[in-house]
Design a protein around this nucleic acid. Structure first.
Length: 890
RNA sequence: GCCGGGGUGGUGUAACUGGUAGGCACGCAGGUCUUAGGAACCUGUGCCGAAAGGCGUGCGGGUUCGAAUCCCGCCCCCGGCACCA
């Protein structure tokens, strides 16, 4: 141990030590309890950001803690290495996605290793490795065999000029990102996974996850799945043998229907308008709406538009003729793609009917029982009130009418109760290069044929021109596309779609359990040992997509017999973002902090600069902090300590340069005092026991505080995981050691008893510092004479007995107001305590005051309040109140 | 609009099931050491007040001996979803 703390040196030393000793590499050990701690895999953007530090620091703290508690801790890491941005970057840099990605991994891995996270790097995987994505293909084929996948026509964003499909990112504002052409929609045959088959289970499973998952993630998933209970009702089309079925949650309002409205894509549209005078106009309208970019149609504020088709439907409840319209606000994907319009009970229908002057009927009373004539309505009333004008179901509570009318529709054979979900089947096709090739072959003779298992993986070809026009880049790689049909041997074509990268991230953490398996995605026994994940940590942005898809995939694997559990993640923590102040100049927009002068002006133009809001760090806002730069200043330990100390893990935190300094200063403070004591501690013999009774006050105090703080931090790790308060407890313990040190100095330097007490405190402090600042902890631990790494050292224990206060402070409240404090010994009886309280001068004055305020002869009641029945007294409560004469009724 | 999460000193945060509000840190002030310190260590620091004391957890009510914590009604901030029938 050096007198001065040099983070760079000791961090390098210990990172090398851990790597050489393979300290964090683990294998299955049935004799030990396992703990699987997982941070979300990193996207290979090319650069580490502060969010990574926060993510890893949380996971690493927990991993260290569990390791020191004797768990067999699996803590792996890997790369989310496929995806469209690598293509964009490769085009820009004149390289290829493979090279771009490999370089990014190499650089980011170097960056991450400087953070000194306790990863088992021997299990590292990258989703762009053929050894990994081979199993994506294997899963794909197994799912295809089981009917869990299917193909259908689905729209993609399409650039008509370049003939390529575009991601939503590339089609922003409805323009092609490269050539600026107007983006249209094109129907392509694409692969879909039947996730909706699992909608109900995905929903129910959320309840089972209980406290393990944040409520807001569960809520977001519930909304995403969007279960809605209602009814389907069939309307016959007048003068034809056709019919249209609508989905409604409010069948009780069906007497108020004034139209049937179809989505422009509805299959009934063509036959319906055939031979009608408005045919061409209606079809033109439908075509125009269909071409609007996906999503753009449902954006807020989009004007409702519709057109009458010329057809009429019959309301099965009252035989009324209803005009059939099509409109932009009816979505083909939801429900049946057709609705009944009930303006009195639905805001959208109301708006639409007013615009097109469609008359309607009132079918509900207001909540206070009035019937408002339709013409006088200003908004629709969507409440569940009482029905009116609804035939034999009039004057019923709406819920009751809803139930009865559903039954009636069912009995009459034109409807039935039904459940609809917002969740759609998952489109996994991408018309891109940098992804897992779909392992399918299209043969004219045999249809769709899976690539045989022994020919997997279907490897992505190299040196592909990414800038060609006309569909996926893979379409143009003839040696890839042209292939013999595995079934008949005839000429056939490979499928050129690649898979959504969410497929990669669905099961990567199963692969960590057995990362080098060449025979199977994983050995079910290894997965049975390590899974499910005990703690998963990542950003809230994955609350729905990734975290639903991966739950789904787990259930698929379960149904394939590969795993035996339903949910892959027991506990989930969504960490908050690190934010920072921004600066704004009216001329130069966002400024870097160094562009703002001390007088708060822009250093370029001198105009006053405004201190903007605290916002998420980003390049464009010029408020990003580079973690590697920060590590260069004060080291990885200080950086990690700061991000954990700034606030609870799940909350957003604010970066502060002075706060970061503070973290570094704290580590120096620990180092200094440890340096001062380490020699005397190592020189004295270790197995001396400490007798409390022989100790001086300041020594007993440090012992007590040590045990109290070990208890507090241990409980925090086990329950709340509020790591910021763990750190504040460590600081308290450090402050106690400084007080102790002063007292010991005053006594003339460290006595043998001082050293024994100090050893206990230092060894507790250093071990508890490990999860937050492992490098400095290892260095100090070694200096105290320990040969073994902290990774093989037990977490400190505590004793409730030793943590107990000798003298307790008991507040006294009179009528709820704090009036005095008593200091009593632990074994003071309740009667003694009450007597002492009543004898207290301040208490007497307060009682007198209260009595005077009340007047007469009020009674004074005293009692002792405890948190637990057998716990120490928490307070003496004195109540002064007017004597109430109780009357007894007998 | 619906659904979540918040609102505590000058600042970031703390206070587990209602029981001494302000622990830890930043900042600030003072002191010690020092040629000096922007280093280190120590002390102080919610507001009003000379003090005694009073007031204080977004605002207004309520329950309770006692409320940052529970209930009712508002206001504000952050996040998610949003023509889902």
């Amino acid at each position: 141990m050096n007198e001065k703390y040099h983070p760079k040196e000791i961090e390098q030393k210990w990172q090398k030590h851990w790597a050489d000793e393979k300290t964090f590499e683990v294998t299955e050990d049935p004799a030990r309890k396992k703990f699987y701690c997982l941070e979300m895999l990193a996207y290979t953007s090319g650069r580490a950001h502060i969010g990574h530090v926060s993510n890893f620091a949380i996971g690493d703290a927990l991993s260290w803690y569990k390791r020191m508690r004797g768990f067999n801790v699996l803590h792996p890491f890997g790369w989310d290495a496929f995806g469209q941005p690598a293509e964009t970057a490769a085009i820009k840099d004149g390289t290829n996605p493979e090279k771009f990605t490999r370089d990014a991994i190499a650089y980011m891995k170097w960056q991450f290793q400087r953070m000194g996270i306790s990863y088992d790097w021997s299990r590292e995987i990258a989703s762009c490795d053929p050894e990994y994505y081979k199993w994506n293909q294997w899963f794909f084929i197994r799912m295809w065999e089981r009917g869990m996948l299917y193909r259908k026509l689905a729209p993609v964003n399409w650039c008509p000029k370049e003939n390529i499909s575009l991601s939503n990112e590339q089609a922003r504002d409805g323009k092609c990102w490269r050539c600026g052409a107007e983006v249209t929609q094109k129907e392509l045959m694409q692969w879909f996974a039947r996730i909706t088959d699992y909608a109900e289970e995905l929903l129910d499973g959320l309840d089972a996850l209980g406290d393990g998952w944040p409520e807001r993630v569960a809520t977001m998933q519930r909304n995403w799945i969007g279960r809605s209970r209602g009814a389907e009702v069939r309307f016959e089309i007048a003068d034809t043998d056709q019919s249209v079925t609508v989905f409604t949650t409010r069948i009780d309002t069906i007497f108020g229907a004034n139209a049937i409205i179809l989505a422009p894509e509805h299959p009934l549209l063509a036959p319906l308008v055939e031979g009608k005078p408005q045919r061409d106009e209606v079809l033109r309208f439908a075509e125009r709406i269909k071409q609007q970019q996906r999503g753009a149609r449902s954006l807020e504020g989009v004007e409702k538009e519709g057109i009458f088709t010329g057809g009429w439907a019959i309301n099965p409840f009252n035989q009324e003729r209803l005009p059939v319209w099509i409109a932009n606000f009816v979505l083909i994907e939801y429900g049946t793609g057709a609705i009944m319009s009930v303006p009195a009970g639905d805001g959208r229908d109301f708006e639409f009917s007013r615009k097109y002057h469609l008359p309607f009927r009132q079918i509900k009373l207001t909540e206070d029982g009035r019937e408002i004539p339709p013409d006088e309505m200003e908004v629709a009333d969507e409440e569940w009130t009482t029905t009116v004008n609804t035939g034999e179901w009039s004057n019923l509570p709406a819920e009751e009418a809803n139930r009865q009318m559903t039954e009636y529709a069912e009995a009459q054979g034109f409807g039935r109760g039904s459940i609809t979900y917002k969740l759609r089947d998952w489109g996994i096709s991408r018309q891109r290069y940098w992804g897992t090739p779909v392992p399918m072959i299209h043969c004219e003779q045999c249809g769709i044929v899976a690539v045989p298992d022994d020919q997997l993986p279907v490897v992505l070809p190299e040196n592909v021109n990414l800038e060609v026009e006309g569909g996926s880049p893979l379409n143009h790689v003839l040696e890839f596309v042209n292939v013999a049909c595995p079934k008949c041997g005839g000429a056939a074509r490979r499928d050129t779609d690649t898979m959504d990268t969410f497929v990669d991230s669905n099961w990567y953490y199963f692969r960590y359990c057995d990362p080098h398996n060449a025979e199977a995605p994983f050995d079910p026994e290894k997965v049975a040992y390590w899974m499910p994940v005990d703690q998963y940590i990542g950003g809230i942005e994955h609350a729905v997509l990734h975290l639903i898809y991966t739950r789904y995939w787990t259930k698929v694997m379960r149904d394939m017999g590969l795993v035996k559990f339903d949910e892959p993640v027991t506990r989930l923590l969504t960490q908050g973002m690190i934010c920072k102040e921004t600066y704004w100049c009216p001329n130069h927009e966002w400024l870097f902090p160094e562009q703002v002068t001390e007088e708060n002006t822009c250093s370029i133009c001198g105009r006053p600069a405004t201190v903007g809001r605290v916002e998420k760090m980003s390049k464009s806002r010029k408020n990003a902090v580079d973690p590697i730069e920060m590590i260069g200043i004060h080291g990885a330990d200080a950086l990690r300590l700061f991000v954990l100390f700034a606030g609870p893990p799940e909350k957003d935190k604010e970066w502060s340069d002075t706060g970061f300094e503070g973290a570094a200063r704290y580590l120096q403070r620990v180092w200094r005092i440890a340096y001062k004591w380490h020699a005397s501690i190592t020189q004295s013999s270790e197995d001396e026991s400490i007798e409390m009774t022989e100790l001086a006050d300041y020594q007993r105090r440090l012992r007590r505080r040590t045990h109290q703080i070990v208890r507090a931090i241990t409980e925090n790790f086990e329950e709340r995981l509020h790591l910021n308060t763990c750190i504040s407890s460590l600081m308290e313990l450090t402050n106690e050691i400084y007080l102790f040190d002063q007292a010991a100095d005053k006594n003339g330097g460290p006595a043998e008893s001082d050293i024994r007490v100090a050893r206990e405190a230092f060894e507790a402090l250093i071990r508890m510092l490990t999860p937050f600042a492992p490098h400095i902890a290892e260095e100090m631990w070694e200096s105290l004479g320990h040969a073994e790494s902290l990774a093989h050292t037990e977490w400190p224990g505590y004793s409730d007995e030793l943590a107990r206060e000798e003298e307790i402070e008991v507040p006294v409240k009179v009528n709820g107001k704090l009036r005095s404090r008593l200091f009593v010994s632990h074994d003071t009886s309740d009667t003694e305590l009450e007597r002492a309280a009543l004898a207290d001068e301040k208490v007497q004055a307060a009682i007198k005051k209260e009595k005077a305020a009340i007047g007469g002869d009020p009674e004074v009641k005293t009692r002792i309040i405890r948190l637990h029945n057998d716990g120490p007294p928490k307070l003496v409560d004195i109540v002064v109140k007017r004597l109430v004469l109780c009357r007894t009724y007998r």
